[in-house]
Design a protein around this nucleic acid. Structure first.
Length: 138
DNA sequence: GCCAACGTTGGC
DNA sequence: GCCAACGTTGGC
């Protein structure tokens, strides 16, 4: 199963707001980048990923799950882009910061480090398992 | 607050 | 279809 990483500035959409949406989840609107779009299109219902706070915190704070697969984003006037629905699954016991990721040689290939501007990124199974562990989850 | 990286736009 | 200008993102 594939894994993902979603970035959001807490000032516009935070983990706490995601949690407050509960089981039904929320629309991940606003992606206007073709690389990110391709990742969104590849997602399957039930796949999990990380929720990352950019700018403020710069840390991975929780696990989210795809509850609805790719469909058009109503907030995009051009109609070219789409989105998925995500719900919060569980928070990390300990947030994993960008510094933590950089300090771990096994995570040196992560897009988070190498292409920091991509807002929706794939994460390998190995990276996913390791970051979960670093965050205090099984 | 600055600036580098990168995507998008628009003139040609 | 190329490329310079511009806007946005995000780490520092």
């Amino acid at each position: 199963m594939a894994h993902w990483l979603y970035k959001s500035e807490p000032s516009s959409w935070s983990w706490d707001e995601q949690v407050a949406c509960g089981e039904k989840g929320t629309q991940w609107t606003g992606v206007r980048n073709h690389s990110a779009k391709l990742n969104l299109m590849a997602m399957k219902k039930g796949e999990r990923g990380f929720f990352y706070h950019s700018n403020q915190g710069k840390e991975i704070v929780g696990i989210v799950e795809v509850v609805k697969e790719y469909y058009p984003d109503p907030t995009d006037p051009s109609g070219r882009f789409g989105m998925v629905d995500l719900k919060a699954v569980e928070p990390l016991k300990t947030p994993v910061t960008l510094d933590d990721v950089k300090a771990e040689p096994k995570l040196a290939a992560m897009i988070l480090i190498n292409n920091s501007r991509l807002s929706v990124q794939p994460v390998t199974d190995e990276e996913y398992a390791l970051i979960r562990k670093m965050g205090g989850l099984k």
